[in-house]
Design a protein around this nucleic acid. Structure first.
Lengths: 207, 207
DNA sequence: AAAACAAGCTAATGAATATTAGCCTTTCGA
DNA sequence: TCGAAAGGCTAATATTCATTAGCTTGTTTT
């Protein structure tokens, strides 16, 4: 029963460390504690395991984004929530997103895997862009347009604001994926970045 | 003679499209127009071809950065060059860097290859970080510290300024690597980003 | 001109690897 | 309790692939 899931998990770990093609089904089986042919009782091929990981991520991702997308549906209705945006809460939002992306077990392994596989398939390419560029950017953009509407932030192109806020986070994230030992340095820079961002975009009179 | 180079070139193309492990030596040979065993007259193994690509890139990269690193050596001595930094020249610098990274034949294929191989080897990881994060950031940081010193730009943490300037460029670059058809959209956003950046950091009195 | 070398080829080798066949044991619903 | 399904195993298969051996041919060096 849960062997099926343990296979997925072991495969994801291996794929995220060495890439799909470099990992043999024997290795996956080994990590699970069974022999290679037994895998085929659960998945009909190696590719099928990979697809299983994709579906699993699909489910988790939709759950995660649904939780964020302001369940009240109408964005401006929730504007009150933001009546007290402080520098600290902005920092917390940034650092929170960063550490979630970097340390969530599934998210982190999945991103590394997708990084390596993105050019093998147009579908994987768009999935990557959606999860790590388009969706975060449009989410941030939405938030900043609310903050502008409330008069808390300067009015500016919210697309550009979102890019200013999120792109450094993204760059530092991919850096830490490669060199985890530089996380402290990255966090420091990220915090400085957000302070600077806050200084730039927050309206003076509401300080 | 130039077969040796043609092998490197064909291999880089294939590696950048499909990743090192997915490409067979037979495929590389085919692309060059010879048979697989003939490759071994020029390189002693598949890995050796890969290493050849790395060395070739090393040479090109050093040539390229040497050309940028202000051959006059002392940065502040060249401050005069920047006496007339306009919004347009800043945009040109950004767009120029972006299109160079995106369209230079060698740079572009190499980056895609490195993107796929970065987790296979700590050395490749640091190489990636150096070329697409550390070096560009410290270069931009240097420029902004000069611009600040000249009184053209606000004084601020130049590391953060560099991050603000470069990170969006990096994000859009990786996006276009995956989805080249979105280049126009990316260029537009990049231009808006730089205009906004200029507005934020340039001293009002020098407008 | 002869020897040596460069650079191509075909054929062979050997290892890795995904997948299938077929067998055995345990579990469990009828 | 019996039959079948679930889930494990070993052994076999077939394919792909990097690499080597050894031959040929044209060019270069002596």
């Amino acid at each position: 029963m849960n062997t099926k899931f343990r296979i997925l998990d072991a495969a994801l770990t291996l794929f995220s460390e060495k890439g799909y093609h470099t990992v043999s089904v024997a290795e996956i089986a080994d990590a699970v504690g069974i022999k290679a042919p037994s895998l085929y009782k659960h998945y009909k091929s190696k590719r099928d395991i990979f697809n299983g990981i994709l579906s699993e991520m699909q489910v988790r991702y939709e759950k995660q984004t649904a939780a964020l997308q302001m369940n009240g549906s109408n964005p401006t209705a929730d504007a009150g929530i933001f009546s007290s945006v402080t520098e600290d809460s902005l920092i917390q939002m940034g650092i929170g997103l960063f550490t979630y992306f970097l340390h969530d077990d599934y998210v982190c392994r999945f991103r590394k895997m997708l990084t390596m596989e993105q050019f093998h398939d147009a579908e994987l390419a768009t999935l990557y862009t959606k999860q790590y560029a388009d969706d975060p950017l449009s989410y941030q953009s939405q938030i900043f347009s609310m903050l502008s509407a409330c008069g808390l932030f300067r009015t500016a192109y919210t697309d550009v604001m979102a890019l200013h806020f999120y792109a450094p986070l993204y760059l530092l994230l991919t850096l830490c994926d490669r060199e985890p030992e530089r996380e402290q340095e990255a966090l420091l820079l990220l915090e400085q970045h957000i302070k600077q961002f806050n200084l730039i975009y927050k309206k003076e009179n509401t300080q």
